[in-house]
């Protein structure tokens, strides 16, 4: 979509249209283990984004010819609910959904010890219930926790965040309005302990200098999100621990 000129909605130079600072994330709430049937699951709210991720597996690969002899087959479906955006979306997967499913899957491949489970498949399902810009990154943040929640051995969690250029300024974590009206958007996924960039896309126009600046800002965002992910994962196990303690007291 072509980008339109941004109207000066913010009064001060370093404040964005929603009151955030240039390098400030939207409020993030993450919960791990939210679905009954899935082997692992997580829910994330990032600004107005609301996204559920569920993981099934490792399980026998179906159909059989999909099985890989030396590692598990990672599969991923990114999908947006018809009611997740202003105008109803067809529930059929769009070309965008198919491309995103591919790059998200490839963002997880380096994080999973795929060689531990030959001939199986691990399915990652992502449902965007409400979208407000940056859904692919929030989806990765949630789905990585769902993989961990399923007990799948990981090299590290994958954290994702976008940065971009809006109204001439390099900003972190673009919302839908900024994404549509801004000059560039650069989503990035990162494994902190491995110093590994596992997803990188960009559309818009950036000079060499702006590009380096934007990439570094996105990395800073990923590092902050990484801390939130670890807290969310710990919170789930504290809950489990408390439940067990309570049970043993009652007996």
């Amino acid at each position: 979509m072509p980008k339109k000129k941004v109207k000066k909605t913010a009064n001060e130079k370093d404040i964005r249209h929603d009151g955030r600072k240039l390098n400030e994330l939207r409020p993030i709430k993450i919960e791990v283990g939210v679905l009954g049937n899935a082997d692992g699951s997580a829910y994330i709210e990032q600004g107005k984004n609301k996204i559920l991720a569920g993981v099934y597996g490792p399980k026998e690969a179906h159909p059989k010819h999909l099985a890989l002899p030396d590692r598990t087959r990672l599969r991923c479906r990114y999908h947006m609910a018809p009611f997740s955006v202003q105008e109803r979306r067809s529930p059929a997967p769009s070309r965008r959904d198919i491309e995103l499913s591919k790059v998200i899957r490839e963002a997880f491949e380096p994080s999973v010890f795929t060689e531990y489970y030959p001939r199986t498949s691990i399915d990652i399902f992502i449902e965007v219930l409400q979208a407000d810009g940056g859904t692919r990154c929030a989806s990765i943040t949630a789905a990585s926790l769902a993989l961990a929640d399923a007990g799948i051995p990981l090299r590290d969690l994958v954290s994702a965040c976008a940065a971009g250029k809006v109204d001439g300024r390099i900003v972190l974590d673009l919302d839908d309005k900024e994404d549509k009206e801004g000059e560039a958007d650069l989503p990035l996924a990162y494994m902190s302990s491995q110093n590994a960039i596992t997803l990188l896309q960009m559309d818009g126009m950036l000079t060499g200098e702006e590009f380096d600046q934007t990439m570094n800002l996105a990395l800073e965002g990923c590092k902050q999100i990484y801390q939130l992910q670890k807290e969310a994962l710990k919170a789930k196990y504290l809950e489990v621990k408390e439940a067990i303690n309570k049970e043993s007291e009652e007996q």
């Binding site: 380096p110 590994a196 950036l206 990395l219």
Partner: peptide, 16 residues
């Protein structure tokens, strides 16, 4: 010489 599109693909990763 501005960058106008990026796409990473494949099962591996890149360093900064």
């Amino acid at each position: 010489e501005k960058v106008c599109a990026l796409q990473k693909a494949g099962n591996g990763y890149f360093r900064i």
